[in-house]
């Protein structure tokens, strides 16, 4: 008999027991371990993927920031360059203006100096000339010259226009004692004799004249009545000449004092 039914039953039971034993001690633990490992690997892979994504994001962010920084840097550099250029232009302009101003001032100062020098020179020249003329005339003043002067004065008195004579007469009438003959030299009695009647007739008065010597007239005689003056002297000529010279030197018409 090849089949022993008791053994068949026993083997079936044994097999079922073995199924349970292997399930308990082999399949379940092994499969659990494999699943756990796979979960862990999957989790680690997911983690790595997430980290990679994070890193990618951070990298993109960093690059964007770098780009922005570069742009900002270029902008700042360009701005600084343009500002420096503008500052340079401004400084150059300022320096140019300052140089121009200094040059102009210097030019003006030079001109002023030249002018002042010229004026001084002219003035001294003029003074010298006047001095020489005055000295010459003073030296030349003599009796004959004085006589000529008296005659010249008398001739002037005669040829004086009516208007002048009229105003002199009015002034002489208002204050007869004020009539004054001023001369550069002491008049001789003879000369006084000749002058007095002529003046008295001109002023239409009998009042005696007062006499005064004034060397600053250089050479000449003048009649002064109440502030009005008629006469002839070289000082007047010199003054006129001096005025003309001053006008030539200074077109503004200011007469520098000799």
């Amino acid at each position: 008999m090849l089949i022993d039914w008791f053994t068949v039953g026993a083997q079936a039971v044994n097999f079922l027991i073995l199924v349970w034993l292997l399930r308990r001690f082999l399949y379940q633990p092994i499969l659990r371990a494999i699943d756990a490992r796979e979960e862990r690997v999957a989790a680690e892979l997911a983690d790595a993927t997430a980290k990679q994504a994070d890193a990618e994001k951070a990298r993109a962010e960093f690059e964007a920031k770098n780009e922005a920084l570069d742009q900002a840097k270029a902008g700042v550099l360009a701005q600084a360059t343009s500002e420096a250029q503008a500052e340079r232009e401004r400084l150059l302009e300022e320096a140019r203006q300052t140089a121009n101003a200094v040059g102009a001032r210097r030019q003006k100062a030079l001109e002023e100096e030249a002018k002042s020098l010229r004026t001084t020179l002219e003035e001294s020249t003029r003074k010298e000339v006047f001095e020489v003329v005055r000295k010459t005339l003073t030296d030349l003043a003599s009796t004959s010259l004085e006589d000529r002067m008296v005659e010249t004065f008398l001739a002037r008195l005669k040829t004086a226009d009516d208007k002048t004579l009229q105003s002199l007469q009015q002034l002489g009438a208002a204050d007869p004692a004020s009539a004054l003959i001023r001369s550069a030299f002491e008049l001789s009695p003879d000369q006084r004799q000749r002058i007095e009647p002529a003046v008295q007739s001109a002023l239409n008065t009998q009042t005696s004249l007062q006499w005064e010597t004034a060397p600053q007239l250089v050479s000449g005689i003048e009649l002064v009545v109440g502030g009005h003056k008629l006469g002839w002297n070289i000082a007047d000529y010199l003054a006129t000449m001096q005025r003309h010279l001053g006008e030539v030197v200074d077109p503004a018409g200011q007469v520098p004092s000799p």
């Binding site: 090849l2 089949i3 022993d4 039914w5 053994t7 068949v8 039953g9 026993a10 083997q11 079936a12 044994n14 097999f15």
Partner: peptide, 9 residues
């Protein structure tokens, strides 16, 4: 190798 065992299986 026993037919009893193989029959049981």
């Amino acid at each position: 190798g026993s037919l009893s065992t193989t029959a049981a299986l």
